[in-house]
Simulated assay, not measured.
Amino acid sequence: MFKILVIDRCYFTRTGMESWLNQTDLFPASFLVAALHNLMLAKEHIVQWQPDLVIADLHGFKNEIHHIQQLASLFSVCGDGIKVLLLESGEDAQLSDYFTQFNIEETLLKTASLDTLAQSIDAIVLSRPTRTEPKPAVPLLTRQEEKVLTLWMEGRSNQSIATKLSINGKTVYTYKRNIRMKLGMDNRFTPFLSLPDAIN
Score class of each variant (00 low, 15 high):
127 S>Q: 08
178 N>E: 10
173 Y>C: 11
197 D>Y: 11
102 F>G: 12
149 L>D: 08
119 Q>H: 04
141 L>W: 00
143 R>L: 09
29 A>R: 00
53 L>T: 14
157 S>Y: 01
161 I>Y: 07
89 S>T: 10
41 L>Q: 06
81 G>S: 12
33 V>Y: 01
163 T>P: 11
129 P>M: 08
187 N>P: 00
182 K>I: 13
141 L>P: 00
82 I>G: 09
28 P>E: 05
114 L>I: 07
21 L>Q: 00
116 T>Y: 09
108 L>Y: 07
44 E>Y: 09
81 G>R: 06
197 D>L: 12
82 I>A: 06
1 M>W: 04
98 Y>C: 03
52 D>A: 15
38 N>R: 02
121 I>K: 01
189 F>Q: 10
39 L>Q: 07
26 L>M: 10
197 D>F: 08
115 D>T: 00
101 Q>P: 09
110 K>N: 00
144 Q>G: 10
8 D>I: 02
102 F>N: 08
121 I>R: 04
112 A>V: 02
116 T>N: 03
59 H>S: 08
34 A>W: 02
51 P>S: 12
64 E>H: 13
170 K>A: 13
108 L>K: 03
74 L>E: 13
196 P>Q: 12
49 W>S: 15
98 Y>P: 00
12 F>G: 06
97 D>H: 13
155 G>I: 06
96 S>Y: 15
65 I>V: 15
177 R>H: 15
63 N>P: 03
38 N>L: 00
170 K>W: 10
41 L>S: 07
102 F>L: 13
136 P>W: 13
98 Y>K: 01
109 L>M: 12
57 D>W: 02
155 G>Q: 08
142 T>I: 12
94 Q>S: 09
161 I>T: 05
192 F>Y: 11
128 R>Q: 06
188 R>N: 03
197 D>W: 13
46 I>E: 09
192 F>P: 03
54 V>H: 09
125 V>C: 04
78 C>M: 11
34 A>F: 03
120 S>F: 05
120 S>C: 15
15 T>Q: 09
81 G>F: 00
99 F>L: 04
124 I>A: 06
6 V>M: 10
77 V>Q: 12
153 M>E: 14
152 W>L: 03
81 G>Y: 00
11 Y>R: 07
101 Q>H: 07
106 E>Y: 09
42 A>L: 08
134 P>N: 07
47 V>W: 03
78 C>Q: 06
167 I>S: 08
127 S>R: 13
81 G>I: 01
165 L>W: 07
41 L>N: 08
45 H>S: 14
132 T>A: 13
109 L>Y: 00
40 M>L: 14
46 I>N: 01
187 N>I: 01
115 D>Q: 01
190 T>H: 06
144 Q>C: 13
126 L>D: 11
193 L>N: 09
31 F>I: 01
162 A>Q: 02
72 A>K: 14
115 D>W: 03
158 N>A: 12
9 R>I: 04
152 W>K: 06
59 H>N: 02
187 N>D: 10
148 V>A: 05
120 S>K: 12
154 E>G: 05
